[in-house]
């Protein structure tokens, strides 16, 4: 690691100020950032820890009935505190990494990082969630911009994520055998207005919505509805752990399973 200063503000305002310094970077749970600092892939001058900011912690219900999660809330907390209101989301959080990772890693960090194999982006996109930052609100459909890229501006922090709670939902993750991230993961959510299906881990463009499956499921939310569909392997990731064709296939299998399990 290169040397840097460490700051731990207690309010969003102070954090935003601290992040205004040159080459400052936010630190969520550090579960992604610290390993990359060790590899000297980043050289921040200041790390601004968000873990001391109370107003960014915890799970609550918004005025419109949505589930609101503070941007610095750990996966473990979401797994526990969202379980009653949005079980599929809680289960997703409870399936990220391992217990020690879940005790530190945060939803804001996961979304800001937008790893193509991460779990949360699938839930956010399939739920049509809203990402709230210190500066604005961003719709899920506008937030993810490809591998490790998001709509966030430098220094902008995710302070909260608001999830409309679906009638039914489920996340199916097929583990990459080494990292245990999603080799492919599918989040299916059924709302009064239709179904949304988001696929992570599969595409070279990052998390995406599978519109054919959404159309089919919006008419008939059952595993049968997906049967005749297939995803093209074009643009899917091919690596040590799976070919593009395998990932395309998995996306369909997992969609079917997610619908059956929701």
């Amino acid at each position: 690691m290169y040397a840097f200063e460490f700051e731990k503000p207690t309010t969003i305002a102070d954090a935003v100020k601290a992040l205004g310094r040159e080459d400052a970077q936010a630190l969520g749970g550090g579960q992604t950032l610290i390993p990359s600092l060790k590899q000297r892939l980043a050289a921040p001058s200041v790390l601004v820890s968000l873990s001391g900011i109370k107003e960014m912690q915890g799970v609550c219900t918004g005025d419109d009935g949505s589930l609101c999660i503070g941007g610095a809330t750990t996966h473990a907390t979401v797994a526990k505190e969202a379980a009653a209101k949005y079980p599929a989301l809680a289960a997703l959080a409870g399936g990220i990494g391992d217990p020690a990772v879940r005790n530190k890693g945060t939803i804001g960090g996961s979304l800001a990082n937008n790893d193509p194999s991460a779990c949360y982006p699938a839930a956010v996109l399939a739920s049509g969630a809203t990402i709230v930052t210190n500066a604005r609100k961003i719709a899920a459909d506008d937030f993810f911009e490809g591998l490790f890229a998001t709509a966030l501006e430098p220094g902008e922090i995710i302070t909260e994520v608001r999830f409309p709670v679906p009638e039914k939902a489920n996340y199916q993750k097929f583990d990459q055998p080494a990292s245990r991230f999603a080799l492919t993961g599918v989040f299916v959510a059924k709302y009064a207005g239709g179904a949304r299906v988001a696929v992570t881990g599969a595409s070279e463009e990052g998390v995406f919505r599978w519109s054919e499956a959404e159309a089919a499921l919006s008419g008939n939310f059952s595993a049968d509805a997906v049967k005749g569909l297939s995803l093209s392997a074009d643009g899917m990731i091919g690596d040590l752990h799976g070919t593009p064709a395998y990932r395309a296939h998995l996306a369909k299998v997992l969609t079917t399973r997610a619908v059956a399990a929701s």
Binding site: P177, A178, S179, D239, L240, H241
Partner: peptide, 11 residues
């Protein structure tokens, strides 16, 4: 080495 860490070498 494509499998140069536990991210890609499955223990």
């Amino acid at each position: 080495l494509l499998s140069g860490s536990y991210m890609d070498y499955a223990m």
